[in-house]
Amino acid sequence: MWGTMLGKCDSRCQRMEKVCKELRTSGGDLMESVRLDELDRLVIGALLAHPRATHATIGQAVRSSEATVSRRIARLRRTGAVRVVGALDSQISHRARSVFVRLRCAPGAADELALPLAQWDETGSVKVLTGSVDCVAEVAYTSNEHLYALMMHRLPQFDGVMATFSNQVIRRFSTPHGWNPGLLPDTVVAELRAERRDRWSERPEPDEPAPMSELDERIVAALIDDGRMSWQELAARCGVTPSTARRRTEALMAGGVLRMRTVVEPEVLGLLVNAFVWLTISPTKIGIAGEILARHRSVVMIAATTGDRNLCGEIAVASDSALYEFLSETVGHLPGLIHADVAVALRTVKRAGMIAADLRSSGS
């Protein structure tokens, strides 16, 4: 098994050259339009650790001035290299559940169906892949009937879908809310995380949904649009005083309902190989394996799932050799490993609920 899987790495250098060429020539081209220096990387690392940290706090963390940090963040956000968003935790709030949908497509069909799939309100992320499947999407559904309609009626309407596989998320070990790619020392990351009001780590969902008022709903909607909105701006948007806006927001954060996230494509950070892993682990070892992967810097997210694979996740590494090392040294040594499948992302069509900038106009 491992000889077959790891042997695939031999051809990835040529494939990644093609990926980088596509990234350079597609629309906005983040890697060309946003040239990051070391301070930019440190600022992004601070935002990943604490998305709502003040400019002064970030300045202390990266050893720069508050004014410089303010200018850097403004530029990074203006160019689209970084987004800071709020997110309603659908599982804590019991609003929805998540399922990973993998599609095997006819030759050339994946690119044609990825954008229409990304235009679904239910999809949080969509990627075109190369590997055993051609496209993967994270889909939110509110009931079994809703999922039935998506899988049995809407998906089959796409031309070129040869097979579908679904894996429902039943336990999250890590999510992008807590991704730490190692841009800052661990001690600095820990200090920044300690100041967060929202929850960056994962925990089992409660038995009962967290209640939300009409004001709570307005606050969440506003911060989904702009996660770094000031208390004054948030208060004006929601029609309350700044103190009320802050108090209710921090209550939502403390309860785990409202979570903050800094969204950045791995390629912007020089992590050119973005891949998905689907693992089969002995049922008695799923928790141990999930926790091991959750602590790894290369893991953007990892979750226990139902279906043909019981541990699914996204990774981001700098090179093919780094991918090989991750597979052989980390995945290969997971306790209870039975089977592993890897697919490399060729294009991010949608991430964190937003379609890629260079694709939005083509979807109208």
Rank of each mutant, 00 (worst) to 15 (best):
S328H: 04
E250Q: 13
A316Y: 10
R52F: 04
G287C: 01
W200D: 11
R196G: 04
I281N: 07
G80A: 06
R351P: 00
K21D: 15
G131V: 09
Q157F: 11
E250T: 06
T348W: 02
A194T: 02
S125A: 11
G227L: 06
W120A: 11
N167W: 07
W200A: 12
E214I: 00
G353C: 03
R102W: 13
G363P: 05
L88C: 11
E202I: 11
Y141G: 01
E267I: 15
Q168V: 03
L334H: 09
M253K: 01
L192P: 05
L47C: 07
Q119F: 03
A81E: 02
K18C: 03
R71H: 14
A318E: 13
R237Q: 11
L192D: 08
K21C: 14
V349E: 02
A56K: 12
V300Y: 01
Q168C: 05
P51A: 07
T262C: 12
Y148S: 11
E17N: 07
A149C: 07
T25Q: 12
G178M: 05
C135R: 05
A61T: 14
H55R: 06
R15V: 15
D134A: 06
R247E: 11
V69F: 09
D111T: 06
A345P: 01
W2H: 13
V220N: 11
A352C: 01
C9L: 14
P242H: 09
C9H: 09
T4A: 14
G28S: 15
R75K: 12
E66D: 12
T306L: 12
S64R: 05
S33W: 13
V264Q: 05
E265T: 15
T123F: 02
H55Y: 10
A114E: 02
S230F: 01
L117Q: 00
V344F: 00
L6T: 04
L346Y: 03
P176W: 03
A245F: 10
F158C: 05
Q157H: 11
L42K: 07
V331C: 14
L279M: 07
E112G: 06
A221W: 03
P283W: 11
S93Q: 02
T187W: 15
T130K: 07
G307W: 14
D225G: 10
E291K: 15
L192R: 12
C20A: 14
G332T: 06
S282I: 06
V331M: 13
Q91R: 15
R295Y: 04
A294D: 06
T249Y: 02
A140V: 09
G182V: 03
L271K: 05
V133W: 12
Q91D: 12
R104V: 04
S11T: 13
I73L: 04
